[in-house]
Design a protein around this nucleic acid. Structure first.
Lengths: 211, 211
DNA sequence: CCTTGTGAAGCTGTTCACAGCC
DNA sequence: GGCTGTGAACAGCTTCACAAGG
């Protein structure tokens, strides 16, 4: 572990590598090369090796990497060797989709509560998790102490919800609302705007028409 | 328009700026400065100006930018001055969430078809759009000629679906399945892995514990 | 002989600081 | 005076190419 300032792009790729390795593991494969990892994750082999080099030496020269131990190492780096408690705010289509997303559960994210303002939704259960009223966010989260809060409400509400999560002690927030939310220095936020990706596609298509 | 190689990060930010400007427009605001745009979109003022400078001069020195015309300019750059036809493959929670996502419709993305393999879902309608069987992707898309295909199926199916969309002539694909899909050089794909963002959060939390 | 690990080089994007202009 | 537009300096990430080592 050499550590210090590791590029965020590296962390994103490690996350992707780990999913690929997990797949290989299920297939019973034992050894893999950096170039094969690269090929299957949209990276280059040098990139794979550099990314791993930030954290240590995991391979054997002339041979490659042991799938199982590399997977464990990366999962450890990403903090996936423990479970994380998550709450989701917003039981609209997106909030529900996220709360049922297999990809999350599989990787140790446990959905501990869902919040919504709609009285028709409040009280219902989603996969064993009760939907609570958003007015209770501070109260419930102060008690639950979730590691991560996911925001899936309309843009107008996003900042208010973030403030409430923070007031309740949540220190990591993933915001899916199409608005940039700001937080104090000691809280980390990731704004994930789904439209952005569509608009990169349309930008490129519009450019293609011109030149 | 100076054009040529524009950073993807710039396009992502333009997309965010445009949403902010749209909001200001609805509020009736007429003038805005680069630093105010920056503040509300998580960028810096120099970055805002540089991003815009790739495409021309849109502001007035000493004054700022006209909200309406800047919005129009950016929308034009992003290709949002026309509507785009979209098909969604996968009518699971995520596919349905995407098909109903207001943020998409608002910005001119028209959902023309939804596909799924589940016979119970096939034939039902989602906001006026019929769910069709995935076996008909090539046939239907060859006819519809959608601009964009969105993949929201389990990882195992993603590559197969992408291949079918491409066979039907789709040239832009947004993949939400947690697997990297590869495409020929003349097709653009964006792999949007929702777990990645959660895992950047956990990485930072795990690091924080150590140092 | 093969594949990893890594300094060095190259490239791309960001920040700075100020000239240009209203 | 104030804010944009921009060349130049800087920082950060990626690629290269090869030494290291099984």
């Amino acid at each position: 572990m050499k550590s210090f300032k590791i590029p965020e792009a590296t962390i994103m790729r490690l996350s992707v590598y780990s999913r690929y390795l997990n797949r290989l593991l299920k297939q019973g494969l034992t050894t893999i090369s950096s170039s094969e990892i690269a090929q299957n994750t949209g990276a280059t082999s040098a990139q794979v090796r550099k990314d791993l080099a930030y954290f240590g030496e995991f391979g054997t020269r002339g041979v490659g990497y042991d799938v199982g131990s590399l997977y464990d190492s990366i999962a450890g780096i990403l903090g996936l060797n423990k479970d994380w408690d998550v709450v989701i705010v917003g039981a609209g289509k997106l909030g529900l989709a996220l709360s049922m997303y297999e990809g999350f559960r599989e990787r140790g994210f446990r959905n501990r509560a869902i919040f919504d303002v709609d009285p028709i939704k409040v009280g219902k259960k989603v996969q064993g998790v009760k939907i609570l009223h958003s007015d209770t966010i501070i109260e419930v989260c102060s008690e639950l102490k979730p590691d991560i809060g996911i925001i899936a409400v309309p843009g107008e509400e996003a900042q208010k919800i973030a403030d409430q999560l923070i007031a309740a002690g949540v220190r990591s927030i993933l915001n899916f609302a199409p608005r940039v939310v700001s937080v104090p220095y000691d809280v980390q936020i990731r704004n994930v705007d789904l439209s952005v990706h569509l608009e990169i596609l349309t930008y490129n298509m519009a450019m293609g028409d011109k030149g």
